[in-house]
C-alpha cells in the first residue's frame, strides 16, 4: 500500500500547491511512491481519509476554516504546512494590525454577508503541525526533501541560517552591500537565494531566520506577521 498524500487549501493564492505540480521531472516518481488521494488543483477525484501526509496551504481566516483544519488534522498522520500563509498568516494577516470591520465596510457593498475572523492565523495557531515549509511560494527542492525524508523514515532537513549562505554558496555578489535594500541577512534560507541571483533584494518571504535579532521581526510583517521571533 502506497502512503496516501492529500493537499488542502485554505486562504491562499494556490501558488504553493502549484509548486507541487511544478515538480515536473519528479512528478511521476512522486506518483510512483505515494497515492495522491486528495489534490483538487490537480484532479477532482478524491479519496477519503485517513491520510499519511497532508500538505496544507493557506491561513485560517473564517470560522469554517477552523472546523475544516480540525478535520484535516484528525484525518492526517503528518500535517505539513506549505508556504507563508499557512506557516505565518500570509499577506492577509496584515489585517491583524487593523480593524477588520472597518476593512469589511470599505471593501464590500454588503459587509454583513462576509463571515470572517478578526485575524488571519497560521495553521499552527489552531491545530498542532508536524513540519512547516516557508516561503511565498515554497521551494520545490524543500518540498521534495521533506517528502523524501518522510517516505524514508528520516527527519527532514531544513536550514536555520540566513539567505546570505545561499548567495555565497551560489556565487551571487551581495546586492545589499552594493546598495540594493535586501532582507537576506535576517531571512531564513531555503529559496536558494532566488531574488538576489536576479539582482533584486530579498523581500523576506521565508520569514525571520532562527536566531535573527528580535528587532528584525518588524521588517517581516508583510508575509509573515504571525511568525514567531
Amino acid at each position: 500500500m502506497k502512503p496516501k498524500l492529500a493537499v488542502w487549501k485554505f486562504a491562499s493564492c494556490d501558488g504553493c500547491q502549484l509548486s507541487l505540480l511544478d515538480c515536473e521531472d519528479e512528478l511521476l516518481e512522486i506518483a510512483a511512491h505515494v497515492q495522491i488521494a486528495h489534490f483538487l488543483e490537480a484532479s477532482s477525484a478524491s479519496v477519503c481519509g485517513p491520510y499519511d501526509i497532508s500538505l496544507v496551504e493557506g491561513s485560517v481566516t473564517t470560522p469554517l476554516d477552523v472546523e475544516r483544519i480540525r478535520q484535516v488534522r484528525a484525518d492526517s498522520k503528518q500535517l505539513i504546512t506549505i508556504g507563508a500563509c499557512a506557516t505565518a498568516g500570509g499577506i492577509q494577516a496584515l489585517r491583524n494590525f487593523a480593524d477588520v470591520d472597518e476593512f469589511r465596510s470599505i471593501v464590500y457593498a454588503r459587509p454583513e454577508f462576509i463571515d470572517t475572523l478578526a485575524e488571519s492565523t497560521p495553521i499552527a495557531a489552531v491545530v498542532p503541525v508536524d513540519y512547516e515549509l516557508r516561503g511565498c511560494p515554497i521551494d520545490r527542492g524543500q518540498l521534495l526533501e521533506t517528502l523524501s525524508a518522510l517516505l524514508n523514515g528520516r527527519r527532514p532537513r531544513g536550514p536555520l541560517h540566513s539567505v546570505c549562505f545561499e548567495c555565497k554558496t551560489r556565487g551571487t555578489t551581495c546586492v545589499l552591500v552594493k546598495g540594493t535594500p535586501c532582507l537576506g541577512p535576517a531571512t531564513q534560507a531555503g529559496c536558494g537565494a532566488l531574488c538576489p541571483a536576479y539582482g533584486r533584494g530579498c523581500y523576506g518571504c521565508f520569514g525571520p531566520a532562527t536566531g535573527a535579532p528580535a528587532h528584525a521581526k518588524k521588517v517581516f510583517n508583510l508575509f509573515n506577521s504571525g511568525a514567531p521571533s
Binding site: 549562505f165 531566520a209 535579532p213
Partner: peptide, 22 residues
C-alpha cells in the same frame, strides 16, 4: 545579524558540515 557573511567571504574560514540526501 548573525547572517554569516563574514565567514563566507573570509579566505581562511574553513568550517563545513555534512548533509545526507535520499
Amino acid at each position: 545579524l548573525a547572517c554569516g557573511n563574514c565567514t563566507m567571504v573570509c579566505p581562511t574560514c574553513f568550517c563545513t558540515s555534512v548533509r545526507d540526501t535520499t
